[in-house]
Amino acid sequence: MTDPKDAEKSVDGQGTKRRRTRIYRDRRTVSLRMEPDLHERMMGLCDDMRIPANTYISGLIGNDLKKRKK
């Protein structure tokens, strides 16, 4: 569910700069490391549910915070 066009070379040539649409302006990025098997299982579930992995993970975090009343 990733688009190779999401990244482009930065102006100074020092890596990549992701293009973000306006809807992402107020969101923050979090890097998440997981075991390959867990990632594969999660992506399979997301494909079955037809939702992006980000939506799935954000939902899990949101539900847990609600449960904990944070």
Results as ranks from 00 to 15, higher is better:
41 R>T: 05
22 R>F: 13
37 D>I: 12
20 R>E: 02
25 R>S: 13
1 M>H: 09
53 A>D: 06
48 D>E: 08
61 I>Q: 05
28 R>V: 01
37 D>V: 14
26 D>P: 00
13 G>H: 11
31 S>F: 09
62 G>Q: 12
38 L>I: 08
38 L>F: 11
36 P>L: 09
15 G>H: 02
17 K>M: 06
59 G>N: 07
29 T>E: 12
60 L>I: 07
64 D>S: 09
8 E>P: 00
10 S>Q: 04
66 K>H: 09
59 G>W: 06
25 R>K: 15
59 G>C: 05
63 N>I: 04
41 R>G: 10
23 I>G: 01
33 R>D: 15
60 L>C: 11
18 R>V: 07
52 P>L: 05
28 R>H: 01
10 S>T: 07
11 V>G: 07
41 R>F: 03
47 D>G: 08
32 L>M: 11
54 N>L: 00
38 L>Y: 07
27 R>P: 01
49 M>H: 03
31 S>A: 14
47 D>E: 15
31 S>W: 09
16 T>E: 07
67 K>L: 09
45 L>G: 06
27 R>C: 02
13 G>Q: 12
67 K>G: 06
68 R>N: 00
50 R>E: 07
29 T>G: 14
34 M>N: 03
20 R>K: 13
19 R>Y: 05
14 Q>K: 14
25 R>Y: 10
24 Y>F: 00
15 G>Q: 04
68 R>Q: 01
66 K>T: 11
11 V>T: 09
5 K>N: 15
42 M>G: 02
5 K>M: 12
35 E>T: 08
13 G>K: 13
44 G>I: 08
63 N>M: 09
6 D>F: 01
18 R>I: 11
23 I>K: 05
45 L>H: 13
54 N>T: 04
46 C>T: 00
19 R>H: 05
39 H>E: 13
49 M>E: 03
66 K>Y: 05
70 K>A: 07
67 K>M: 09
59 G>Q: 03
27 R>F: 00
10 S>F: 08
68 R>T: 00
28 R>M: 00
